[in-house]
Design a protein around this nucleic acid. Structure first.
Lengths: 134, 134
DNA sequence: TGAAAATAGTTGCATAACTAACTATATGCC
DNA sequence: GGCATATAGTTAGTTATGCAACTATTTTCA
């Protein structure tokens, strides 16, 4: 319920700022802002999504002219996903909104508590994925 | 990533036990096992889902003969959602699997840490929903 | 070198989420 | 009584997820 509430609030805050992107699309853009022109497979790894999900997220981002698929010159199986100028310009505003949303969500919660949560989640993740190829 | 990993593992464990239900369907059944013949609106409140989601979850559960919509005798707008015998029989196995899944996920994590996580999430939820009619 | 296996990405199908618009019934109040 | 409003549930459209099957390349290795 808490994570759904955070996701809903973030989506609402994007919408109120006039941003027409979904949280899932934003999470893809987020990784491209950190490093542009990643392959779809690399986006799968970084966003923890499977390949069909990335294919369709990229489809939608391409429709909105936020990214473009560029064929790799060294490996013809690979699409590099590159940001458009419009997408580059979205970065600051969306990160501001995301930070504000986290501030709303985390009000009254201490650094130490957040660290416990992060640590627990890392161990849960490891418990379930160690030894898996996913 | 951690919550997605837990959800995927639970789904996988259900499937391996020959159970053909989704986690979302299970979450509805879970509340009906605690109290049978709830209205759809009440299921919305308890599962933290919106009305269209519940409509379709009940549609699918009805297709699988796990629940039945029964018209309320006192208010003709209301559908009471009641468990079938088959659904009653699923309870023990699914709760066993859910507990085993949580054990896998929470291995090496202390009671105190779990309490911190619960407390943090309750406050996050309250931060985002107090004053809302949702 | 050439066939088998691995890798990158797409497509189809089922389930589920959110929003908005809709129908039907019930309640409140003048 | 009757109209406005609230409540319960459904439907339609878009986006997203998971799985399985598929195509097209590249790599491996006998």
């Amino acid at each position: 319920m808490a994570s759904t509430a955070v996701a809903r609030r973030l989506q609402k805050n994007f919408r109120q700022a006039g941003l027409e992107i979904t949280i899932e699309q934003w999470s893809v853009l987020y990784h491209l802002w950190k490093e542009d022109c990643l392959s779809q497979q690399e986006l799968c790894n970084r966003t923890f999504r499977d390949k069909p999900s990335i294919t369709r997220l990229i489809d939608n981002l391409e429709k909105q002219k936020l990214v473009k698929r560029v064929a790799s010159k060294t490996d013809r199986r690979i699409n590099l996903v590159c940001l458009s100028q419009a997408a580059v310009e979205l970065q600051d505003l969306t990160i501001l909104i995301a930070n504000q949303t986290m501030d709303e969500a985390l009000e009254g919660i201490s650094r130490e508590e957040i660290n416990v949560v992060k640590s627990v989640f890392q161990r849960v993740y490891d418990n379930l994925t160690v030894g898996m190829l996913v």
